[in-house]
Design a protein around this nucleic acid. Sequence first.
RNA 1: CGGGGUGUAGCUCAGCCUGGUUAGAGCGCCGCCUUUGGGAGGCGGAGGUUCGUCGGUUCGAAUCCGACCACCCCGACCA
Length: 548
Amino acid sequence: MRLSRLFLPTEREAPADAEALSHKLMVRAGLVRQVGAGLWSWLPAGWRVHEKVVQIIREEIDAIGGQEMLMPVMQPAELWKKSGRYGFPEQFRLNDRKGAEHVLAMTHEEVVTLHVSGAIRSYRDLPKILYHFQVKERDEPRPRAGVLRTREFIMKDSYTFDRDAEGLQAGYDLHAEAYARILERCGLEWYSVEADVGMMGGSMAHEFMAPCAAGENDVALAPGYAANVEIASADAQDPGPLDLDGEHHTPGLTTIDAVAGALGVPQGRLLKAFPVVLEGGERVDVFVRGDHRVNEFKLRNALKTGYRPAREDEIGRPAGFLGPSDDVRTVYDAAVGEGPWLVGANRADWHEVRSVQGETLDVRTVVAGDTVNGAAITVEPAIEVGNIFKLNTRYSEPLGATFLDENGKEQPVWMGSYGIGPARIAAAAVEQFHDEQGIAWPKAIAPYDVEVVALGKPNSDEARAAESLYGELQAVGLDVLLDDRAAGAGEKFADAELLGCPLRLTVGKRSLESGAAEAVARRGRADLDPVPLDGPVEAVRERWRGLP
RNA sequence: CGGGGUGUAGCUCAGCCUGGUUAGAGCGCCGCCUUUGGGAGGCGGAGGUUCGUCGGUUCGAAUCCGACCACCCCGACCA
């Protein structure tokens, strides 16, 4: 492609409202443009990146036996009512001209299960892996960070259909391995973590995370351990000594900070109350250490039910001075030992030191420095680029996807669901690989493999030499971008570094004199051995092999 | 949904507080010339349905008031 003809609107300055690096750089480099909140167009160069990621995903899912298909975005509401997923706040709903209700799909479990339920009859028809690349529509409460969190995006989602839990495990493992290969090939730094199953239902989930500053998830890491902090579990640090006894007058001191400060006690020696009401109506007081925080995901999972914070009139004791009480079910976080602890005395303006005993559940959010198998964890932000879920029979049962086993007995199909987002992979790559000058793409997903910068005027000897280099490289199947614009050298170099193609070849007067084009690796802006203008292909291939 | 902020040229912004000829700058864009190894220079020029929308105040509104809309950031939320 000739840059003089490419629709590549680069900008010197980042959009004023952009925060995330990938947002700024992808807009500046002319890869994407915003249409509305969480709605983005991919311009030609950006789309090339997206589609390179798509192709890698396709090859790896095909390799584990996936069969590509396509299902519609707009779907009858009926189907979603059956699965019990109609009416989510982030679901776009609309009526057709006859008034019939439809939804715009946020994912495709319902439809794919519908097809399977209609076509799969026998255990002989299983297993199956079906997948497609399709637009997902989600009315996100808060789209953000450019292309990282949008209301409309393309996802590869695949679904496995098996006869039992073992089969599902096999499909799950195949996807975990395929995702590992995809992210490796895309050149990302990544890891997989245990994850909350969330509203998808099912029994097991892993997320594939790309660590970067703009990440929306926090991940707890230790040697041999990686988990989303939503579910991470670790041993707590020593809270420090408690040299105190008896009751203490603490007038107006309702916060951990205030009480710990006034009595000279480490915050970790206090207990903090979190009064809740379960979905069934039961009142529960949850206690965690003063230096810890209740983790809402872990608490919901540990209680095995939803809950809401209790209102003041439901607590029945003075808020701010809550301690364990015999009158209400009490749950202690696993990091809360017998004590003694400094706790609220259940009457205003008093705290007391006492030991505690009772039901124990792991419900706190881990913090950096906690330990797993003796090793301290770190917590870092990451982008979720893919996830895999065991759905079990969450969808097959309501949607009637069953098969007959060898004994002629009807059984529900066991399902798994596996998503991965090309746009997030592209944005994560930008987050991870950039510098002051711009993007430094991994070579597998760069918009072009090589950018040839032609210096000198159009039709000069340099320009003609660049043209011929361009032609020779193209002829052997490389994706080559030729900067043939009538622009100054500085502008061409600046744009090339912004766009971030892995290999840049410069043809100017110097190269005519030496008979070789200068070669620069975008990553690290490292000078490579020059490429001879006479027979450049082998040299370019050799330089290319060495690039990340 | 709560809090904060922003809407003026393709982009980044000034002007608004303290209302008053024809609404400005830089970059970008067009023409000509010069230049051609790091966003170079000169001359000339175009570009705003008149300042997000609607309404109000006023002799007069980009500027003051109100409502609404859009977008961004923080939080809530996030299959």
